[in-house]
Structure formats: C-alpha cells, structure tokens
C-alpha cells in the first residue's frame, strides 16, 4: 500500500503550485454498489503549465476533471486552487470559484443556441456581475483573440464546428481565469479543426496561460508539455 501510494505521488509538493491535489478520492454510490472512481491522486500543476491528462474511458479522468473544475468535491483528500482550499466548499462558493478562476472548454462546445457568439462569450461575465459596456468590450476582445472578430453576431448554428469551439475557448478566456480546463476539446472536430484548436492552445500556453487538457487521444496529449495518465482511478506521470 505504501509503495502504491508513493507511486501515485506525481510531483513533490511545490509551494507555488497553482493546483495542488493531495490524496484525492471520489466514491460514488450507484444503487447498492460503491464505485471508487478516483483512488488517491496527488497532483501539482504550476502556473504556466500545459498538462494533458490521458486515459481510456472509465479510468476516472472525467471524475478528476470534475474535481479540478470545482464541479464536484472530493470524497477525501485536499484540493487547493490558487491557495484556496476547495474541498470543503459549498455550492455557492464553488460557483464563484468556477466563475472567477476556471475557464471551461467542453467536447460538445456547449454554446447556447439562439444567442450570438458575443452573448455566449459574455455569459460568464454576466454571472460575475460585470457591467454591460465592460462586458461587451471584453467579449469582443476575447473573440478577436481567437480570430473570430468578424463573427461576433453569428449564432452557433451559423458557425462551423471549429469556429464554435473557438467561441467556447473565447468564453473560457474572457474572465482571465487562473486555469483553462478543456475536456476532450477536439472530440467532436475533424482533423483540420483539431489542428486549429490545438494551435490555439499552444499560443495560449506560449502567452503564459495554465492549461489542463483531458483527452483519450495520444496525438492530442503529445501537444502538452506534461502528460499524466489515468488508469483505474490512479494517476501516473508519463512525462
């Protein structure tokens, strides 16, 4: 057991780590059966890191992503994000942390239909209580940043898959979050669009953004500067 635990220590605890997970477990109760999706993960992500978490479905990587994204709290263990202890937070505080500190990019884009790209990008700022004029200016800037400055009034169904994902990257960027968390961001894209989005992530990394990317594709994971593999609820460093 001790040996197993040591193997799980992905990196020694750094004082300046942006993300710090210690002994994180997550147990679900599915009817009568308890399922341990994450079995004690230690993980540090430094500011400016570009980390890929790779693993097949059922490896616990999605659960880990939910915990990192403050969408769920660990059953045991600690998780600090930018020095804040997240593990014991209530729903209200978690919502705030998600809003201020994390930018999400989802596999299915998750843009709201019927709303323009601009309105979609403004959404997190609206929940943050940013004034209307300020909101618009920042959303326009974020859309320009992802190369969609000429598409701000287009609705999601008027944009290609790659463009839609770029809108959701803009939405993730607009709050200037500490962390960009991408869950299978290229899963619904063709190879050209995949290259487009991965290029965008590279640029963001180069400009100093912290990115955590969850994927099951090795060529996508290869783009990251560090790779951690999830297997049976445990994490091990690949490189």
């Amino acid at each position: 057991m001790t040996a197993a635990l040591e193997a799980m220590v992905v990196e020694p605890a750094g004082e300046s780590a942006l993300l710090q997970l210690r002994g994180v477990t997550k147990t679900y109760l599915m009817g009568e059966i308890t399922v341990q999706a994450v079995r004690g993960v230690d993980l540090d992500v430094q500011e400016g890191d570009y980390l890929a978490i790779i693993g097949p479905s059922g490896s616990g990587k999605s659960t880990l992503m939910h915990i990192i994204g403050c969408l769920d709290i660990p059953t045991t263990g600690t998780y600090t994000l930018a020095g804040i202890d997240v593990a014991g937070m209530g729903e209200l505080q978690l919502a705030q942390v998600r809003n201020r500190r994390i930018g999400f990019v989802f596999q299915a884009f998750n843009l709201l239909p019927g709303m323009s790209a601009l309105r979609n990008v403004e959404l997190p700022l609206m929940y943050a209580g940013v004034s209307r004029a300020d909101r618009r200016a920042r959303a326009v800037r974020a859309l320009e940043r992802v190369g969609l400055g000429d598409r701000i009034d287009h609705k999601p169904n008027e944009l290609s898959g790659g463009q839609q994902q770029r809108v959701s990257v803009a939405r993730a960027l607009v709050t200037e979050p500490d962390l960009i968390l991408a869950d299978e961001p290229t899963g619904n894209l063709d190879s050209a669009s995949t290259e487009e989005i991965l290029g965008l992530f590279r640029e963001l990394h180069d400009s100093g953004r912290t990115i955590v990317l969850i994927t099951h594709e090795h060529d996508v994971a290869d783009q990251a500067s560090r790779v951690v593999a999830m297997r049976d609820g445990q994490a091990e460093v690949v490189r």
Binding site: G69, E91, R98, N110, Y127
Partner: peptide
C-alpha cells in the same frame, strides 16, 4: 439540463 449545467459551470448560482 445541459444548458443549466453549462450555466452552473460558468458560475451561475442555484438562486440565479
């Protein structure tokens, strides 16, 4: 459900 989940992920509180 997806929209609600997204809004929550983006920072909407239950009361919102």
């Amino acid at each position: 459900v997806r929209e609600i989940g997204l809004r929550k992920a983006l920072g909407a509180t239950p009361s919102v």
